[in-house]
Write a protein that binds this DNA or RNA. Structure first.
Lengths: 148, 148
DNA sequence: GGCATATTGACAAGCAGCATGTCATAATGA
DNA sequence: TCATTATGACATGCTGCTTGTCAATATGCC
């Protein structure tokens, strides 16, 4: 039913996501980055250099499309290819200095916004919410697997 | 930062939504309904008959596209047009008996799944999570409005 | 009643964000 | 050494939506 709190929580995910994406996009205006490039740079900054197929796995997107995203990012000068000791035909994608600085700035700015919003909420309530949502994700996976 | 609980919560919204949509879609197989039709029928069942532009406002989608969704739903026999006393050129979209029964079944089935998952979680933790997310939506709106 | 303005349904076109298919060229593992 | 797999590149298609346009009303205001 629509008056179940859990039902409400589940369908809050859509507006939540829309606002998150809107915020990210808004903060990107003027930086020269697109949302797609930001996604690539974020992974590289967080997890370090990696080849395209590995990026695709982390982003859970088809490697063919990630390739396009990466090519754009390289063309914009925020990333570059380097020899991959583990696979000669699949170069590592690495941040350039410009890319490094830019993504650090962007992520820091986002972190400031999140920190500001965190202050308006009780820390342990946030923890509870995270725990509920994480459990919920597992429960939904179970329901989905019930009839494949 | 990526280790902030609130950051984690915000980006849980995407997988949450994906799973919610996957579940809805899965439960629709064999009913003759598409996800789009379900969306239309859900509003009609919840809020009562209304004309297309009003549906569009509630769904927050362009009316031109909602019109397509509604036409499909009518063609499938789950809804029909009736005279609108408030606006002669814009008929009310109403559930047919078939549509009424079907959407009630679908929503009841979904409610059963949600109820099952609710049992695995503490009721007051769910309430806390809902409260956090609702507050968060407001906070994000504020952040977005800061520079339009 | 008469007229400017807004609303509606219908249709067409376009676009972003993917998925899918294919292929040549390596690279890898047995 | 040879079958298998991985990779980059390119083309094509799809879905879900937006945008634009238009004629036909309908409505609000005088």
């Amino acid at each position: 039913m629509s008056n179940s709190p859990l039902y409400h929580l589940i369908w809050s995910s859509r507006p939540l996501m829309q606002r998150a994406e809107a915020l990210v996009e808004q903060r990107l205006t003027g930086t020269g980055l697109t949302v797609r490039m930001r996604a690539v740079l974020e992974i590289l900054a967080r997890d370090g250099d990696c080849p395209v197929p590995e990026l695709a796995r982390r982003l859970e997107i088809q490697r063919q499309y990630v390739q396009v995203m990466v090519n754009e990012t390289i063309a914009a000068g925020y990333a570059e290819k380097r020899d991959n000791p583990r696979h000669k035909a699949s170069p590592l994608i690495c941040l350039t200095d410009r890319g490094q600085k830019l993504i650090a700035d962007v992520l820091a700015g986002e972190a400031r916004v999140v920190a500001r919003m965190s202050e308006a909420l009780a820390a342990d309530d946030i923890e509870t919410a995270v725990a509920v949502v994480d459990r919920l994700l597992g429960l939904m996976d179970d329901e989905i697997e019930k009839r494949p």
